[in-house]
């Protein structure tokens, strides 16, 4: 089911999964829609055949998760973080065990992560991979608690906008759209707005932080993931006052589309359709608003391991996916 070929291009790999869905889309039974809640509490509505395919995929993911747990039980907790003393790594002075293991296992890790991190392991793996663990280790343990206490009751332009957006962030979600969900998301966003006053709060971060909370389970971990995302993983200044980084991303993506998909680009050009019309939201919300949660999180799996270029790969893949053979 999941691409076994080793392709160079991730947009390719993402794409290779899509044809598997196609037969069901073309032969599906019309008008039978079912609703269900996905792993992260989002309501998904779909054609019964598509949902069956989804369930198959979920079962595969679950199996994969069981394999990981078995390994964990076998080799001890956090086995994958332990340094493996090998001839390659011996000569290199490495500061953290994570770096060491990442180096020795880079290729295997990359391949595994592209196939998806089992949801049960996501909090752990993300925290280590992204550098959030390292970031947190450089400050006193009480940093997050001190920060949230210190900013309590303060009102700024950022906090006002945050308060306005809390009930509008994935409305109807069984946890996010509760007083507890609102309060937790608020602490993370407000805390961050004081940590980096250049960013403060930018709409879009509400979706990102919300999804981080759902995955990480604890608000402090979600906070550090948000910090590492904005400070290290993503293009800088994406969310700052004039969104300059975001403008840069859109220009780069436009050029990239022209280079990688010249026919689509030419078609859109003829329509005078500016791709930033759709892609701005993709890049600012990191697909959390436009892809189903599990799909978005698969993108994030790779994002935390390989960096911001992944966003461009995925955006390109979406454009390629919509290419209908008869038309283009």
């Amino acid at each position: 089911m999941f691409g076994t070929q080793s392709t160079r291009d991730i947009s390719f790999e993402f794409q290779s999964q899509i044809p598997n869905w196609r037969p069901s889309i073309y032969t599906r039974r019309a008008n039978i829609t079912v609703k269900f809640q996905d792993l992260y509490g989002f309501t998904v509505e779909g054609n019964v055949d598509d949902v069956n395919v989804l369930n198959e995929v979920r079962e595969k993911v679950r199996q994969q998760g069981r394999v990981w747990w078995a390994l964990e039980a076998n080799k001890g907790a956090n086995w994958y973080l332990q340094p493996q003393i090998s001839s390659i790594s011996e000569g290199i002075a490495l500061k953290s065990s994570l770096k060491l293991s990442a180096l020795t296992n880079t290729i295997t890790l990359k391949r595994l992560i592209r196939k998806g991190i089992p949801p049960v392991l996501r909090p752990k793996v993300w925290f280590s991979l992204s550098g959030a663990a390292k970031k947190r280790s450089t400050v006193p343990e009480s940093y997050y608690n001190d920060l949230t206490k210190a900013v309590e009751g303060k009102v700024t332009a950022a906090t006002r906008q945050i308060d306005h957006d809390l009930p509008r962030t994935f409305p109807g979600h069984p946890w996010l759209d509760t007083p507890e969900g609102h309060a937790t998301l608020r602490r993370v966003l407000v805390g961050y707005s004081f940590r980096d006053s250049d960013v403060g709060y930018c709409q879009g971060l509400n979706y990102v932080a919300a999804l981080l909370l759902l995955v990480m389970k604890t608000e402090e971990d979600a906070f550090w993931m948000l910090a590492v995302l904005l400070e290290n993983v993503l293009v800088s200044d994406c969310y700052t006052n004039n969104l300059s980084g975001c403008h840069v991303e859109q220009r780069v993506f436009k050029d990239l589309l022209a280079k990688k998909c010249p026919r689509i680009a030419a078609h859109l050009e003829a329509l005078e359709f500016d791709v930033s019309l759709v892609a701005t939201e993709w890049f600012l919300c990191l697909f959390s608003k436009s892809l189903p949660s599990e799909t978005a999180l698969r993108v994030w799996d790779v994002l935390f391991n390989e960096g911001a270029k992944v966003l461009f790969h995925v955006a390109l893949a979406i454009f390629k996916q919509d290419r209908r053979p008869s038309k283009l």
Binding site: R168, Q203, N206, L277, T280, E281, L284, K289
Partner: peptide
């Protein structure tokens, strides 16, 4: 519907 904040532009 109570809608989510618009990011960028929509039409």
């Amino acid at each position: 519907e109570d809608l989510s904040p618009t990011i960028g532009v929509d039409f």
